[in-house]
Simulated assay, not measured.
Amino acid sequence: MLDDQDYRHIVTSEPTGLMQHEWKKHGTCYGEGQLEYFNDFKNLRTVVKYNKEFREHIGKTVFLKDLKYWFPANTSFRCAFKNEKQYLFEVFYLINKDGSPFYQEKSLQIGERCIESPITIPDAINVHG
């Protein structure tokens, strides 16, 4: 996968450690081999959609209602807290293997849920689109 230029475009410059972590934590339950897992990751990036207003607010403070408006309903938000300030940490897209939205009644929230207080979108965020 590291020789695939399309894949290299969407990962960090040294993704080996992250790839090992993702495979161990998520890929081993995927039901396919490593190559299929990472190829599907690359190909499913096309379903990652957000309102252009999100990009315009990088480096600024917004509210959770704004994030929910800018992203599809099958997303979940993870925040990190530092010095009593809330930062957007991750946006999770809940999708099926075929790229269709995944909806489930119970929450699949991972990590700290963002709360209804100002959320800073770090300007170091890597946004493709």
Rank of each mutant, 00 (worst) to 15 (best):
W70D: 10
K24H: 08
K97E: 14
F92E: 03
K68T: 14
Y103F: 14
E32V: 14
L35I: 09
L64R: 00
D4S: 02
E53Y: 11
N83Q: 14
V127R: 00
I125W: 07
N83W: 12
D123Y: 11
N51A: 14
M1G: 13
P101M: 07
E90S: 09
K106I: 15
Y93S: 02
R113A: 13
I121A: 00
P101S: 06
D4I: 00
I58W: 00
E36V: 14
E14A: 13
N51S: 12
V62L: 03
Q86W: 13
E53L: 12
E53A: 13
N96H: 13
S100M: 07
R113T: 12
G27N: 02
S107C: 09
Y37F: 14
S107N: 11
N96L: 10
H21C: 11
L67G: 03
E14I: 01
R8I: 09
W23A: 07
K65T: 13
P122V: 09
S107A: 10
K24M: 10
E105W: 07
E105R: 05
L44N: 02
V11I: 02
N126Q: 11
E90K: 01
Y87K: 02
C29S: 15
Q5D: 13
C79Q: 01
K49L: 10
V62W: 00
C29M: 12
I115T: 09
I10S: 04
T28C: 11
Y69R: 15
P101Q: 04
E32Q: 12
H21Q: 09
Y7M: 15
K24A: 11
H9I: 08
T120V: 15
G99T: 05
K42C: 09
L94S: 14
K25G: 09
P118H: 04
F77N: 01
F63T: 10
G31L: 01
M1T: 04
W23I: 02
D3W: 09
V91Q: 02
T75L: 04
I58T: 02
Y69C: 13
N43Y: 11
K52S: 08
P101R: 00
F102R: 07
P122G: 08
H57F: 13
E36Q: 14
Q5V: 14
Y7T: 04
N51E: 08
R78C: 15
G59E: 03
V11A: 06
E105Q: 10
Q34S: 06
E116D: 12
Y93M: 01
T120R: 03
K68S: 10
F41E: 04
F54R: 01
R55M: 13
G59N: 03
V11G: 06
K85I: 15
S13G: 09
Y37R: 05
I58A: 03
Q34G: 10
Y69M: 14
K97R: 14
I115R: 01
